[in-house]
Design a protein around this nucleic acid. Structure first.
Lengths: 193, 193
DNA sequence: ACAAAAGTGTTGTCTGTACACCCATGC
DNA sequence: GCATGGGTGTACAGACAACACTTTTGT
């Protein structure tokens, strides 16, 4: 957002004296998007001396996983913010491109062992949607037969009777993530890909 | 170090205006231990409002991997610092225990995919030493036959003719980490455990 | 000769991967 | 009836886990 001099930046703000880093991240995300209850995770702190030309600034970067259903209306209008596909990333100010790369890498690692990918999807999603999410994160094709066998074998997806019919004639069954089953299993550590 | 009121803390210091976070970490490690060229990695930034009773302090935590040969002489004397085995960790000030737990967990993840474990060993080390290092990091026994087969199959260890004879009658062969071979292989991503 | 740690192989099980066809439906 | 995307099964290979005995040598 904030296309200062034709160059974009990630959204950000300053930490207040009476709020934690995590609280600041939540507040800033909310103030610029209206979104609440979003999965956020601290990424890294960037502290090169001259990284910000305006003075000495240390940035504690967070990334958020935002449900693809939620973004349209709320974000775009108010703060000339924009969503950008990773493969169309424009030049970014300061070290913000590094931040994006770091976040992408972290997401790839994380998504292999934690069910955070589901936060990026609507509550009801189809296997093809989940597949293409993983393909986007890994920027690589994944065999759909192996993928669905593996996902279903984890036993943390509940199949619904309902089908999503907008993107195909046949329609794809909806699934929901089963938080309870996941929590029972997560102690033994399970692998998502 | 710094047993203020009978409670220990991790070592730390303040970032200067003309140094990066990474430089500060290196400087502080050096000033308190005399050590240089140590593998360090930023862990996490801790920013709860009241985490430090002395005022609002945000701590950017780093962890270092220090060769077990190097520590004896330099550290202990000068700053009443002490090394503590993880399973004998005393109470620590503020959120420092959390930091140690976070670092331990990060190390377990990291060591599975990156050859950073070798930084903790002397340049020449034996397979039993490497094994017990991994057992310490994972706090779990590892089968030595499977372990040595896997490590050797990576092809990044050079066996020396020399043996380490102080800890057994038979003696164990020394190995060295082969940085070059590792770099050739690392693009494909290899798994250490 | 014995104690103490180093070293070494095999087998079964599981997991990952490659691969191709039929199904259901709207038009 | 055909075009489109959804759904399913099998076979092979490689990785992993379990497991016990022999070797070396200092005392």
């Amino acid at each position: 957002m904030d296309p200062g001099l034709g160059v974009w930046s990630l959204m950000g703000g300053f930490v207040k004296i009476d709020e934690s880093l995590d609280e600041a991240a939540v507040r800033i995300l909310h103030s610029l998007t209206g979104l609440d209850n979003i999965y956020m995770e601290q990424l890294h702190s960037y502290g090169a001396v001259h990284r910000d030309i305006g003075g000495r600034v240390i940035s504690v970067a967070y990334f958020a996983l935002i449900n693809i259903e939620d973004y349209e209306e709320q974000v775009l209008d108010e703060h000339d913010a924009r969503w950008v596909p990773l493969n169309e990333l424009p030049d970014l100010i300061f070290d913000h491109k590094q931040m994006v790369q770091d976040a992408h890498q972290r997401l790839r690692q994380k998504v292999a062992n934690h069910p955070i990918g589901f936060a990026l999807l609507p509550e009801k999603f189809t296997l093809p949607q989940l597949l293409s999410l993983y393909e986007a994160i890994y920027d690589a094709p994944i065999d759909k037969r192996n993928f669905s066998r593996k996902m279903l074998s984890l036993g943390i997806l509940k199949k619904l009777a309902e089908k999503e019919k907008s993107s195909s004639r046949k329609g794809a069954f909806f699934y929901v993530f089963d938080q309870e089953k996941y929590e029972k299993l997560s102690n033994e550590g399970l692998s998502f890909i």
